[in-house]
């Protein structure tokens, strides 16, 4: 568990969280990027860009 940087609610995390993975805050819906896992540090995820995809 760690705190959402947007709303302060507790965010549940998977055990196998990877740096670069996105997690959603179930309280406020914010997309958060894991920028570190030891200890876990979350930041706001980048906004969708037009050239993202396959």
């Amino acid at each position: 568990m760690t705190e959402c940087i947007e709303c302060g609610a507790e965010v549940t995390l998977h055990d196998d969280l990877e740096v670069g993975e996105i997690v959603d805050c179930s309280t406020c819906g914010a997309e958060l990027e894991a920028v570190d896992t030891d200890p876990v540090e979350l930041d706001s995820a980048p906004e969708l860009e037009e050239d993202w995809g396959e």
Partner: peptide, 25 residues
């Protein structure tokens, strides 16, 4: 730049096979 489920699947498979994985952001 983002670890999607696709990348997680790849990372897991590579590590399970004993490969070294260097994540490059």
């Amino acid at each position: 730049s983002r670890i999607r489920k696709d990348e997680k699947l790849l990372l897991s498979e590579l590590r399970d096979r004993g490969h070294e994985v260097t994540k490059i952001d």
